[in-house]
Nucleic acid binder design. Structure first.
Lengths: 379, 379
DNA sequence: CAAGTCATGGCAACCGCTTGTCATGAACGG
DNA sequence: CCGTTCATGACAAGCGGTTGCCATGACTTG
């Protein structure tokens, strides 16, 4: 395009003139089905088509406030956790005739607020996925536009949650069954509501099953954060680790491996969310799968319900089930536990020995065997 | 919030009344710095602050056309390829005071066109990343709004590209150095411009280095697509495979492994893009790294330049360098090539034997060893 | 046949901000 | 002392739709 100004197309006035009716009639022909004589409407539609008329969403939104835009604020685009959430949300939104504005908060409450500030006036509703903002900041938002929070509970603000408690419970049971006695929780961001929830559930579950639990962290919810955690883990070894999320878990596995610990032979690691990549990392991660797509879908649906009813429909949180996916990062505890800790204590980048493939029974039917793999790390 | 209608805040009229000036003066106090007496402006600003006045972007955009919105259309949110592109783009956009609208085309030209249709009137400019639309469809878009295409060349439409040719050349050289004689290219979507480009470069490079090349596909650019490709590869074995992208490469590796072929001992696999996950899959992928972040950043910058100059500034494509990242999915060709093909021919889900860890020299200094890993696949 | 209904289309007033144009008066120069 | 110039602020016309209300005329009904 040549000129800088956005091109303006034909307006209802042009259509009206061409069709020999009033602009208001053109408007109604489109937005108010029965309000206009069928034949007239048809004629108008034909003329509009011919002229290439396209309603200007801005102009429409100005008097009505209906922008047909919904915002989905996520804490980090770079986190695969949000893939399917976005997908689910996008689908639900566009099916309802809305366009989704995806905004990234860069894991920062400030950035989140600023971004929100910028687009709140533009959208009809907001989904805050894994928000890093304070409760009160969220309430400020909720006062301006219908709001739904994802993976966070907040009185008076509708929310959709994963059943972390049950998921975590299953993870703990799994480890208990394998024979572990102590579980270490690798914590994620302090600002994360889910993090507190998960830790509490682990703690309670462990208590009931008579296991010991401890917690380290917080760590950034990234692969890098997980590797940091691995170093700390090396200092105080356990046989079983549950991580805030898969990203951390992947980092932990890699970090431990580099430090010479074998996963799962010496340390079992469980992640959370079942993100893209958790099945093809090495070893494939045992993880508590979040219903990602459904989370996105449901949060938009709740938002739409609110938009329609013009009142926060019953504010009980929507609770979606989690599911333990057992892969190959967990096994019964071995005994060579001290070996790698010492190695780690000595130096950094490991000089371990573990060479024979781990022996554990595959959890599912199919059982092809793959060659070993090295753990070099070109970060 | 209680009422359904988006809340309307104070307007310039309210501010004007409270400050005892005309609305136009309030408007200018904000948008036209020197146009209003400094003291008056200060007073207005104070009153506005006190009233909590926030300019309504819609109302502002209506007469001016300046929505401060930019669209980034990507072919699939679920593809990690776009992570850092989005990041880079988002950053560049918000630094320039624009908000980025990220839209997903679901790998479909139709969906892409529809989405675009819906938001083109809303945005000031468009970046088409890895578009699946036809050239002519893109030109139609470009006629309506300033447009930049990413990873695609198109006369008259500014573009930013990765130097695929050179990257592919490096990949081919790498395989040649290792001693491979034939290279199979696993093709991605036919609608992808980059796909054609990559294949051509591979073909040419192979020719010059006196290797043989062939091509299979197209396959969907997903892990799943890669596994499909693996089956086809099993029918016509080669020692070296270059894939359209990392996702396919990961799928190929997994598929081959399940079929009983050892990677890289029997088959070397190279991916493209260096996406999230390509470093922690098993084995870590040798890949041609695209400058993802820079791609996002540069495409927005070009778009902004166009927006400012109100004319497509010099239309030479911006070319960004690619880089071969050698990890562990490539090695010199082995001889047991026939083994896995037969196995594959026999049945599907593999029953291979390969058990001893592969032996190859790590490419970099550090060299910790990890235990073997199973290839079960809970898809 | 008069009065009441109803379907249909037009008029005009917004929505909130931008901006071209003009009025006003102070400062300034000759 | 008068005519210019300039800074400042107000007026009002849009931008492109939406929508409440009214006018018109056809049709129904008693």
């Amino acid at each position: 395009m040549v000129n800088g100004q956005p091109q303006r197309g034909p307006t209802i006035y042009d259509v009206a003139r061409a069709a020999g009716v009033a602009p208001s009639t053109v408007s109604r022909a489109f937005s108010r089905p029965g309000r206009v004589n069928a034949e007239t409407a048809e004629r108008i539609r034909a003329v509009a088509e011919e002229l290439g008329y396209r309603a200007n969403p801005l102009a429409r939104a100005l008097p009505t406030g209906r922008t047909a835009l919904l915002a989905l604020v996520i804490s980090d685009v770079t986190n695969p956790f949000f893939f399917d959430i976005i997908r689910g949300a996008e689908e639900a939104a566009s099916k309802a005739g809305y366009t989704l504005l995806v905004a990234d908060a860069h894991e920062s409450a400030t950035a989140e607020r600023e971004t929100l500030e910028r687009m709140i006036t533009l959208v009809e509703g907001v989904v805050l996925a894994t928000s890093r903002m304070s409760d009160s900041a969220i309430r400020v938002i909720a006062k301006q536009r219908p709001t739904v929070v994802l993976n966070r509970a907040l009185t008076d603000v509708p929310s959709v949650l994963t059943d972390n408690a049950r998921g975590m419970r299953r993870a703990v049971e799994h480890l208990a069954e394998l024979g572990h006695h102590t579980i270490t929780y690798v914590a994620g961001p302090e600002a994360s509501w889910a993090d507190g929830m998960r830790w509490r559930s682990l703690h309670d579950g462990a208590y009931e099953l008579e296991l010991r639990s401890r917690r380290i962290g917080p760590f950034p919810p990234t692969v890098r954060g997980g590797r940091l955690a691995a170093i700390e883990l090396a200092a105080h070894p356990t046989s079983a680790v549950v991580c805030y999320n898969d990203l951390i878990a992947i980092g932990v596995v890699r970090g431990l491996t580099e430090l010479g610990a074998r996963v799962p032979a010496e340390v079992s690691v469980i992640g959370f969310d079942n993100i893209f990549g958790s099945d093809f990392c090495s070893p494939p991660l045992t993880t508590v799968a979040a219903p990602l797509r459904a989370l996105g879908d449901q949060s938009i649906k709740r938002l739409l319900a609110q938009l329609r009813n013009s009142a926060p429909t019953e504010s009980r949180p929507t609770m979606l089930p989690a599911q333990l996916v057992v892969r190959e990062s967990t096994a019964r505890p071995g005994r060579r536990r001290k070996a790698w800790t010492r190695a780690a204590a000595v130096g950094a980048a490991a000089l371990s020995s573990a060479d024979q493939p781990s022996k554990r029974s595959p959890t599912a039917a199919s059982a092809a065997t793959s060659p070993g793999t090295r753990a070099r790390t070109p970060e």
